[in-house]
């Protein structure tokens, strides 16, 4: 082994202001036979943000992400990931990315520490393997063969391998599918920790609560295009949508829920039985967005 410094270092910290765009996509298109999987997609992801890509199966989500990761060739459009065209991926460029794929069952006979150390050797400026193992919460399992880990622990190894190269940009593809609720919460904390370190994170997920918990911005892909994009709290006019006030004896949709509640309070002379004020959930908005006709 070549003697290389295994010191974790923040990528380009002093230079962050100059480079604000992590991913820039214009008019991306990809077809499989007669099917237009991606059909004129535009996307901008800023450095340092957690960006979630939502969309039903077959909407073009995976194809888009795999083009960004350099796994697939595009038919048309302009793509720049960390300033490089992923269609012309080089080792230098790959060294700046981390990719956590959907499913993998590889390296089952190696221990966690052996695997993470081995992958560290691929990168010019890796993080310290033991620190990474600690960060993903596997210190106690470091000497265990991967075959013997639970599904959630395996996923943590995947994340460890995704971040071992100290990436500027991390892709997470449906990272918590199949997790129990507690494991998901722990996993979210891990991702929040990475985001706090300044890593740009692109997350694809089926779980809307996950997107809402982790992402500063989300984009919904349907029929090969972005149909909505923005802060998960305001996506698709969510914040300004009419609120629904329900109570024991009725339900009202209104733009002024506070006034309604005050009136109700007067009418009942105090507590309103069964009172609830709700706005559309991200899921309601999402379902409307992906069903909307062109």
């Amino acid at each position: 082994m070549v003697d290389r410094a295994m010191v974790p270092c923040r990528p380009c910290a002093e230079d962050a202001g100059r480079m604000t765009t992590a991913i820039h996509v214009r008019g991306l298109a990809k077809r499989y036979g007669q099917t237009r999987a991606v059909d004129g997609l535009d996307l901008d992801i800023r450095r340092g943000e957690v960006f979630a890509i939502l969309g039903p199966n077959g909407a073009g989500k995976s194809t888009t992400v795999e083009i960004l990761e350099g796994y697939r060739k595009r038919d048309a459009g302009e793509v720049s990931v960390l300033g490089v065209d992923p269609g012309r991926a080089t080792r230098q460029w790959r060294a700046r990315l981390g990719i956590v794929l959907q499913t993998a069952n590889d390296a089952a006979e190696l221990t966690v520490r052996e695997t993470v150390r081995h992958f560290a050797g691929y990168y010019p400026r890796p993080r310290d393997p033991d620190e990474v193992i600690e960060k993903v919460g596997l210190t106690e399992k470091a000497g265990t063969r991967i075959r013997k880990l639970s599904g959630g622990q395996r996923r943590r190894v995947d994340v460890a391998l995704g971040v071992i190269g100290n990436p500027e940009l991390l892709f997470l593809d449906e990272p918590t599918t199949g997790f129990d609720p507690e494991a998901r919460r722990q996993f979210w904390d891990l991702i929040k920790g990475l985001a706090a370190d300044g890593t740009t994170i692109v997350l694809t997920t089926h779980y809307l609560d996950e997107a809402e918990a982790l992402a500063q911005r989300v984009a919904v892909i349907a029929r090969g295009r972005i149909v909505a994009e923005g802060d998960p709290a305001t996506l698709g006019g969510r914040a300004s949508a009419r609120a629904k006030v329900t109570w024991a004896d009725g339900v009202v949709e209104t733009d002024t829920p506070t006034r309604t509640v005050l009136e109700l309070s007067r009418r009942y002379d105090g507590e309103v039985p069964g009172l609830a004020v709700t706005r559309p959930t991200l899921e309601d908005i999402y379902l409307t967005l992906i069903e909307a006709p062109k």
Binding site: V2, C12, T21, L82, A95, G121, P124
Partner: peptide
């Protein structure tokens, strides 16, 4: 392909490990 909005070039990129070393690894 004319609008290049992203500026990148990595700062002095450290050397990547050699093919032979990685092959042995």
């Amino acid at each position: 392909m004319t609008t290049q909005t992203t500026v990148t070039p990595p700062l002095a990129a450290p050397a990547l490990p050699s093919v032979l070393a990685l092959g042995l690894s």
